[in-house]
């Protein structure tokens, strides 16, 4: 939960997300964090559902709400299926909705492979449930106006997706 910035100085805890990734620097209109558990299929989709409700209540355009909901769902399922557990931070400022999904492992050895449509490391029993089609990250990217992944094997993965409000 403690992270150093690019200059090697310890960052204020307020600047980092619950699992240690850097927070968006803009002043938030609203910020919420959701814990997502490994293999918690019963609760899967609840974070995305809550995010959708919140954005709707804020009066966001239906298209923005929908894209954010899809991106949040894919991020959530990735955490459920692939990570040891993690969290999703919802950060809304006056220009955009940002989702920061982060976990503490296992990390991805090859991000470009993970971004390839149809590529998945999900086990068979997960695929039988209709997950692991290798479309999650590409879906997230398609829904976003800006999208980035940082990952380190043994450390974890941070996926950041932003959707412009106007």
């Amino acid at each position: 939960m403690y992270r150093k910035n690019d200059n090697g100085q310890a960052m204020d805890p307020a600047e980092v997300t619950p699992c240690g990734a850097a927070r968006p620097s803009s002043e938030p209109v609203l910020e919420m964090s959701f814990e997502v558990g490994h293999y918690d299929f019963a609760a899967a989709g609840e974070a995305a559902s809550k995010i959708k409700q919140v954005l709707r209540k804020l009066g966001m355009a239906p298209d923005v709400v929908r894209r954010a909901a899809v991106a949040a769902y894919e991020a959530e399922m990735n955490l459920v299926i692939h990570s040891v557990g993690g969290s999703i931070l919802l950060h809304v400022d006056t220009e955009k909705v940002t989702l920061v999904s982060c976990d503490e492992g296992p990390g991805m050895p090859d991000i470009s492979l993970a971004m390839k449509e149809g590529y998945s490391t999900a086990p068979d029993e997960i695929r039988e449930m209709g997950f692991g089609a290798g479309m999650g990250l590409p879906n997230m990217k398609r829904c976003s106006d800006s999208f980035s992944i940082e990952s380190e094997v043994g450390r974890g993965t941070t996926v950041t997706a932003s959707i412009r409000i106007a």
Binding site: F41, A44, G45, S49, R66, A69, V70, M129, G130, F131
Partner: peptide, 17 residues
């Protein structure tokens, strides 16, 4: 139309309205 019968089907239907 689907052959999936688990909870996440409902989550997807809800999220997509």
């Amino acid at each position: 139309v689907t052959s999936q019968v688990h909870q996440n089907v409902v989550a997807v239907a809800l999220l997509l309205d």
